[in-house]
Protein backbone atom coordinates (compact mmCIF):
# COMPACT_ATOMS: atom_id res chain seq x y z
CA UNK A 1 0.00 0.00 0.00
CA UNK A 2 1.26 3.44 -0.92
CA UNK A 3 -0.44 6.51 0.45
CA UNK A 4 0.52 10.14 0.85
CA UNK A 5 0.69 10.11 4.63
CA UNK A 6 3.00 9.97 7.59
CA UNK A 7 1.32 6.99 9.20
CA UNK A 8 -2.16 5.47 9.26
CA UNK A 9 -2.45 6.56 12.90
CA UNK A 10 -1.90 10.26 12.23
CA UNK A 11 -3.48 10.57 8.77
CA UNK A 12 -6.95 11.55 9.92
CA UNK A 13 -5.78 14.19 12.40
CA UNK A 14 -3.31 15.66 9.95
CA UNK A 15 -5.87 15.69 7.19
CA UNK A 16 -8.36 17.53 9.40
CA UNK A 17 -5.67 19.98 10.44
CA UNK A 18 -4.95 20.61 6.76
CA UNK A 19 -8.65 20.98 6.04
CA UNK A 20 -8.95 23.45 8.90
CA UNK A 21 -6.06 25.57 7.66
CA UNK A 22 -7.15 25.49 4.02
CA UNK A 23 -10.68 26.66 4.90
CA UNK A 24 -10.04 28.72 7.99
CA UNK A 25 -12.62 31.41 7.38
CA UNK A 26 -15.29 28.87 6.62
CA UNK A 27 -15.06 26.18 9.27
CA UNK A 28 -13.83 25.56 12.79
CA UNK A 29 -12.21 22.19 13.41
CA UNK A 30 -11.97 20.62 16.87
CA UNK A 31 -9.69 17.63 17.29
CA UNK A 32 -10.67 16.27 20.71
CA UNK A 33 -13.33 15.18 20.34
CA UNK A 34 -13.24 15.52 16.58
CA UNK A 35 -15.83 17.64 14.83
CA UNK A 36 -16.12 20.41 12.27
CA UNK A 37 -18.57 23.30 12.49
CA UNK A 38 -19.42 26.36 10.46
CA UNK A 39 -17.19 29.21 11.52
CA UNK A 40 -20.32 31.21 12.36
CA UNK A 41 -21.97 28.51 14.50
CA UNK A 42 -24.25 28.52 16.39
CA UNK A 43 -26.82 30.31 14.21
CA UNK A 44 -29.49 31.58 16.52
CA UNK A 45 -33.00 30.47 15.69
CA UNK A 46 -31.93 28.22 12.82
CA UNK A 47 -32.31 24.45 12.99
CA UNK A 48 -28.80 23.01 13.04
CA UNK A 49 -27.90 20.17 10.67
CA UNK A 50 -25.36 17.67 11.96
CA UNK A 51 -24.03 14.75 9.97
CA UNK A 52 -21.01 12.53 10.13
CA UNK A 53 -19.80 9.02 9.62
CA UNK A 54 -16.63 7.13 9.05
CA UNK A 55 -13.85 9.01 7.31
CA UNK A 56 -12.67 7.97 3.87
CA UNK A 57 -15.67 9.41 2.00
CA UNK A 58 -14.28 12.94 1.58
CA UNK A 59 -15.46 15.54 0.81
CA UNK A 60 -18.47 14.01 2.61
CA UNK A 61 -19.22 15.24 5.27
CA UNK A 62 -16.79 17.92 6.45
CA UNK A 63 -16.60 19.36 2.94
CA UNK A 64 -20.31 20.16 3.16
CA UNK A 65 -20.15 22.23 6.33
CA UNK A 66 -21.06 25.86 5.73
CA UNK A 67 -23.78 28.27 4.75
CA UNK A 68 -26.74 26.49 3.16
CA UNK A 69 -25.71 22.97 4.05
CA UNK A 70 -24.39 21.40 7.29
CA UNK A 71 -23.74 23.15 10.58
CA UNK A 72 -21.46 20.38 11.78
CA UNK A 73 -19.86 17.12 10.70
CA UNK A 74 -18.35 14.42 12.90
CA UNK A 75 -15.64 12.39 11.19
CA UNK A 76 -15.06 8.94 12.62
CA UNK A 77 -11.98 6.84 12.06
CA UNK A 78 -11.70 5.56 8.49
CA UNK A 79 -14.89 3.61 7.68
CA UNK A 80 -15.87 3.61 11.36
CA UNK A 81 -18.74 5.67 12.62
CA UNK A 82 -17.97 8.54 14.98
CA UNK A 83 -18.52 8.06 18.70
CA UNK A 84 -21.32 9.64 20.74
CA UNK A 85 -19.00 12.11 22.51
CA UNK A 86 -18.05 13.68 19.18
CA UNK A 87 -21.66 13.89 18.11
CA UNK A 88 -22.84 15.31 21.44
CA UNK A 89 -20.10 17.94 21.40
CA UNK A 90 -21.01 18.89 17.83
CA UNK A 91 -24.69 19.13 18.68
CA UNK A 92 -23.93 21.39 21.61
CA UNK A 93 -21.63 23.58 19.54
CA UNK A 94 -24.15 24.29 16.79
CA UNK A 95 -27.52 24.17 18.54
CA UNK A 96 -29.09 27.57 17.95
CA UNK A 97 -32.15 26.87 20.03
CA UNK A 98 -34.38 25.72 17.18
CA UNK A 99 -33.43 22.07 17.41
CA UNK A 100 -30.93 19.81 15.70
CA UNK A 101 -31.45 17.48 12.77
CA UNK A 102 -29.06 14.55 12.45
CA UNK A 103 -28.51 13.23 8.94
CA UNK A 104 -27.28 9.67 9.29
CA UNK A 105 -26.45 7.01 6.74
CA UNK A 106 -28.14 3.72 7.49
CA UNK A 107 -25.31 1.58 8.86
CA UNK A 108 -25.67 -0.21 12.19
CA UNK A 109 -22.69 1.63 13.66
CA UNK A 110 -23.76 5.08 12.53
CA UNK A 111 -27.34 4.54 13.59
CA UNK A 112 -26.37 3.35 17.08
CA UNK A 113 -23.74 5.99 17.77
CA UNK A 114 -25.97 8.84 16.61
CA UNK A 115 -28.83 7.31 18.60
CA UNK A 116 -26.75 7.24 21.78
CA UNK A 117 -25.72 10.83 21.16
CA UNK A 118 -29.33 11.88 20.63
CA UNK A 119 -30.24 10.22 23.93
CA UNK A 120 -27.50 12.12 25.76
CA UNK A 121 -27.92 15.52 24.07
CA UNK A 122 -30.30 18.10 25.49
CA UNK A 123 -32.90 19.86 23.41
CA UNK A 124 -34.91 18.75 20.43
CA UNK A 125 -32.99 16.29 18.26
CA UNK A 126 -34.45 14.52 15.25
CA UNK A 127 -32.89 12.16 12.76
CA UNK A 128 -33.16 11.53 9.02
CA UNK A 129 -31.77 8.17 7.93
CA UNK A 130 -30.56 7.92 4.35
CA UNK A 131 -30.82 4.54 2.62
CA UNK A 132 -30.67 5.19 -1.09
CA UNK A 133 -28.57 2.23 -2.23
CA UNK A 134 -30.80 0.11 -4.45
CA UNK A 135 -28.13 -2.57 -4.94
CA UNK A 136 -29.25 -4.40 -1.85
CA UNK A 137 -32.90 -5.35 -1.68
CA UNK A 138 -34.53 -3.94 1.43
CA UNK A 139 -37.10 -6.65 1.86
CA UNK A 140 -34.79 -9.60 2.39
CA UNK A 141 -32.41 -8.01 4.89
CA UNK A 142 -33.76 -6.43 7.99
CA UNK A 143 -30.83 -4.06 8.37
CA UNK A 144 -32.41 -2.16 5.50
CA UNK A 145 -30.49 -0.48 2.72
CA UNK A 146 -27.22 1.41 2.83
CA UNK A 147 -27.07 5.17 2.76
CA UNK A 148 -24.73 6.39 0.03
CA UNK A 149 -24.41 9.31 -2.39
CA UNK A 150 -27.96 10.66 -2.07
CA UNK A 151 -26.90 11.74 1.42
CA UNK A 152 -25.13 14.64 -0.30
CA UNK A 153 -28.35 15.66 -2.01
CA UNK A 154 -30.35 15.36 1.22
CA UNK A 155 -27.77 17.54 2.99
CA UNK A 156 -27.88 20.18 0.25
CA UNK A 157 -31.64 20.41 -0.10
CA UNK A 158 -32.42 20.21 3.63
CA UNK A 159 -29.53 22.59 4.29
CA UNK A 160 -31.09 25.18 2.02
CA UNK A 161 -34.46 24.77 3.72
CA UNK A 162 -32.85 25.15 7.16
CA UNK A 163 -31.13 28.29 5.97
CA UNK A 164 -34.44 29.85 4.92
CA UNK A 165 -35.87 29.05 8.35
CA UNK A 166 -37.91 25.86 8.08
CA UNK A 167 -38.62 24.23 11.43
CA UNK A 168 -37.32 20.90 12.69
CA UNK A 169 -40.37 18.84 11.81
CA UNK A 170 -40.57 20.27 8.31
CA UNK A 171 -36.87 19.62 7.73
CA UNK A 172 -37.14 16.04 8.91
CA UNK A 173 -40.09 15.48 6.59
CA UNK A 174 -38.24 17.12 3.70
CA UNK A 175 -35.12 15.03 4.30
CA UNK A 176 -37.16 11.86 4.36
CA UNK A 177 -38.95 12.86 1.18
CA UNK A 178 -35.70 13.57 -0.66
CA UNK A 179 -34.27 10.28 0.53
CA UNK A 180 -37.40 8.38 -0.46
CA UNK A 181 -37.24 9.95 -3.92
CA UNK A 182 -33.61 8.94 -4.40
CA UNK A 183 -31.90 5.81 -5.60
CA UNK A 184 -28.23 5.06 -6.12
CA UNK A 185 -26.11 2.20 -7.32
CA UNK A 186 -22.35 2.01 -7.59
CA UNK A 187 -19.72 0.05 -9.42
CA UNK A 188 -16.10 -0.64 -8.44
CA UNK A 189 -13.25 -1.23 -10.85
CA UNK A 190 -10.71 -1.58 -8.05
CA UNK A 191 -10.90 -2.02 -4.31
CA UNK A 192 -10.17 0.70 -1.82
CA UNK A 193 -7.31 0.20 0.63
CA UNK A 194 -7.94 1.17 4.25
CA UNK A 195 -4.75 2.90 5.51
CA UNK A 196 -4.64 0.98 8.78
CA UNK A 197 -5.19 -2.33 6.98
CA UNK A 198 -2.61 -1.80 4.28
CA UNK A 199 -4.02 -4.03 1.60
CA UNK A 200 -7.07 -3.97 -0.66
CA UNK A 201 -10.37 -4.83 1.01
CA UNK A 202 -11.23 -7.17 -1.86
CA UNK A 203 -9.61 -8.49 -5.00
CA UNK A 204 -10.85 -7.90 -8.49
CA UNK A 205 -9.28 -9.50 -11.52
CA UNK A 206 -8.01 -7.32 -14.34
CA UNK A 207 -11.22 -7.93 -16.32
CA UNK A 208 -13.72 -7.86 -13.48
CA UNK A 209 -15.81 -5.25 -11.72
CA UNK A 210 -18.22 -5.32 -8.78
CA UNK A 211 -21.74 -4.19 -9.60
CA UNK A 212 -23.60 -2.69 -6.65
CA UNK A 213 -20.51 -1.95 -4.55
CA UNK A 214 -20.89 -0.27 -1.17
CA UNK A 215 -18.87 2.79 -0.22
CA UNK A 216 -16.79 0.76 2.23
CA UNK A 217 -15.89 -1.85 -0.32
CA UNK A 218 -18.75 -4.11 0.72
CA UNK A 219 -19.65 -6.50 -2.07
CA UNK A 220 -22.68 -5.61 -4.11
CA UNK A 221 -25.03 -7.46 -6.40
CA UNK A 222 -22.53 -9.53 -8.28
CA UNK A 223 -19.06 -9.70 -9.67
CA UNK A 224 -19.13 -9.38 -13.43
CA UNK A 225 -16.85 -9.01 -16.40
CA UNK A 226 -15.89 -5.42 -17.12
CA UNK A 227 -18.81 -3.60 -18.78
CA UNK A 228 -18.93 -0.55 -21.04
CA UNK A 229 -20.04 2.81 -19.66
CA UNK A 230 -23.27 2.46 -21.61
CA UNK A 231 -24.03 -0.96 -20.17
CA UNK A 232 -23.21 0.21 -16.64
CA UNK A 233 -25.44 3.25 -16.99
CA UNK A 234 -28.20 1.12 -18.43
CA UNK A 235 -28.16 -1.34 -15.53
CA UNK A 236 -27.87 1.28 -12.80
CA UNK A 237 -30.31 3.82 -14.18
CA UNK A 238 -32.76 1.01 -14.94
CA UNK A 239 -32.55 -0.31 -11.39
CA UNK A 240 -32.99 3.15 -9.89
CA UNK A 241 -35.87 4.16 -12.13
CA UNK A 242 -37.66 0.96 -11.17
CA UNK A 243 -36.90 1.28 -7.48
CA UNK A 244 -37.83 4.94 -7.17
CA UNK A 245 -40.78 4.35 -9.52
CA UNK A 246 -39.92 7.27 -11.72
CA UNK A 247 -42.63 7.87 -14.26
CA UNK A 248 -42.13 9.16 -17.78
CA UNK A 249 -41.84 12.93 -17.78
CA UNK A 250 -40.74 13.23 -14.17
CA UNK A 251 -37.84 15.55 -13.43
CA UNK A 252 -34.73 14.34 -11.62
CA UNK A 253 -31.37 15.45 -10.38
CA UNK A 254 -28.68 13.21 -11.91
CA UNK A 255 -25.53 12.75 -9.84
CA UNK A 256 -22.57 10.87 -11.26
CA UNK A 257 -20.29 10.45 -8.29
CA UNK A 258 -16.68 9.28 -8.39
CA UNK A 259 -15.40 6.83 -5.79
CA UNK A 260 -12.10 8.67 -5.42
CA UNK A 261 -9.75 7.00 -7.90
CA UNK A 262 -11.62 7.65 -11.13
CA UNK A 263 -10.77 10.79 -13.09
CA UNK A 264 -13.27 13.40 -14.29
CA UNK A 265 -12.66 12.41 -17.91
CA UNK A 266 -14.37 9.10 -17.20
CA UNK A 267 -17.03 10.53 -14.88
CA UNK A 268 -18.25 12.96 -17.54
CA UNK A 269 -18.27 10.11 -20.05
CA UNK A 270 -20.41 8.05 -17.67
CA UNK A 271 -22.63 11.08 -17.13
CA UNK A 272 -23.19 11.22 -20.88
CA UNK A 273 -24.19 7.55 -20.87
CA UNK A 274 -26.46 8.00 -17.83
CA UNK A 275 -28.12 11.02 -19.43
CA UNK A 276 -28.88 9.06 -22.60
CA UNK A 277 -30.30 6.21 -20.53
CA UNK A 278 -32.51 8.63 -18.60
CA UNK A 279 -33.76 9.79 -21.97
CA UNK A 280 -34.60 6.20 -22.90
CA UNK A 281 -36.72 5.97 -19.74
CA UNK A 282 -38.45 9.27 -20.48
CA UNK A 283 -37.00 10.80 -17.33
CA UNK A 284 -36.05 14.47 -17.62
CA UNK A 285 -32.72 15.47 -16.10
CA UNK A 286 -33.35 18.94 -14.67
CA UNK A 287 -30.23 19.28 -12.52
CA UNK A 288 -26.76 17.67 -12.64
CA UNK A 289 -23.77 17.06 -10.48
CA UNK A 290 -20.60 15.29 -11.61
CA UNK A 291 -17.54 14.73 -9.45
CA UNK A 292 -16.13 13.15 -6.31
CA UNK A 293 -18.66 13.77 -3.55
CA UNK A 294 -19.23 10.52 -1.66
CA UNK A 295 -16.05 8.55 -2.12
CA UNK A 296 -14.51 5.35 -0.91
CA UNK A 297 -10.87 6.25 -0.33
CA UNK A 298 -8.88 5.43 -3.47
CA UNK A 299 -11.43 3.10 -5.06
CA UNK A 300 -11.80 3.38 -8.84
CA UNK A 301 -15.44 3.40 -9.76
CA UNK A 302 -18.54 5.53 -9.63
CA UNK A 303 -22.12 5.63 -8.54
CA UNK A 304 -25.16 7.05 -10.25
CA UNK A 305 -27.94 8.68 -8.23
CA UNK A 306 -31.33 9.89 -9.41
CA UNK A 307 -33.39 12.10 -7.13
CA UNK A 308 -36.95 13.05 -7.93
CA UNK A 309 -37.33 16.82 -8.09
CA UNK A 310 -40.29 19.12 -7.89
CA UNK A 311 -40.23 22.90 -8.22
CA UNK A 312 -39.49 23.43 -4.55
CA UNK A 313 -36.72 20.86 -4.30
CA UNK A 314 -35.13 22.22 -7.47
CA UNK A 315 -35.22 25.72 -6.00
CA UNK A 316 -33.65 24.49 -2.77
CA UNK A 317 -30.98 22.70 -4.80
CA UNK A 318 -30.28 25.95 -6.64
CA UNK A 319 -30.17 28.03 -3.43
CA UNK A 320 -26.76 29.48 -2.52
CA UNK A 321 -24.33 27.21 -0.73
CA UNK A 322 -20.87 27.99 0.55
CA UNK A 323 -18.88 25.01 1.77
CA UNK A 324 -15.42 23.67 1.00
CA UNK A 325 -16.65 21.19 -1.58
CA UNK A 326 -19.88 22.69 -2.89
CA UNK A 327 -20.36 26.32 -3.65
CA UNK A 328 -22.72 28.37 -5.74
Amino acid sequence: MKKLMNSPDTLLTESLRGFSAAHSGLVTVRLDPMFVTRADAPRKGKVALVSGGGSGHEPMHAGFVGMGMLDAACPGQVFTSPTPDQIVAAIEAVDGGAGVLLIVKNYAGDVMNFEMAAEIAEGAVETVLTNDDVAVEASTHSQGRRGVAATVIVEKIVGAAAERGDDLAALKALGEAVNAGSGTMGVALTSCTVPAVGRPTFDLAEDEMEMGIGIHGEPGRRRVAMMTADAIAKEIVGAVVEDVKLAKGEEVLLLVNGMGGTPLLELYGLYDAALRTCGDHGVAVARSLVGNYCTSLDMAGASITLTRLDGEKAALWDAPVHTAAMRW
Partner: peptide, 15 residues
Protein backbone atom coordinates in the same frame (compact mmCIF):
# COMPACT_ATOMS: atom_id res chain seq x y z
CA UNK B 1 -15.67 1.60 24.69
CA UNK B 2 -18.62 3.73 23.58
CA UNK B 3 -16.40 6.80 23.34
CA UNK B 4 -13.40 5.17 21.70
CA UNK B 5 -14.57 2.37 19.42
CA UNK B 6 -17.17 3.89 17.15
CA UNK B 7 -18.67 1.60 14.51
CA UNK B 8 -21.28 -0.96 15.51
CA UNK B 9 -19.22 -2.80 18.09
CA UNK B 10 -18.57 0.31 20.19
CA UNK B 11 -22.15 1.09 21.21
CA UNK B 12 -22.92 -2.63 21.48
CA UNK B 13 -20.06 -3.75 23.73
CA UNK B 14 -20.26 -0.42 25.47
CA UNK B 15 -23.96 -0.73 26.21
Amino acid sequence: LVMKVGGASGPLYGS
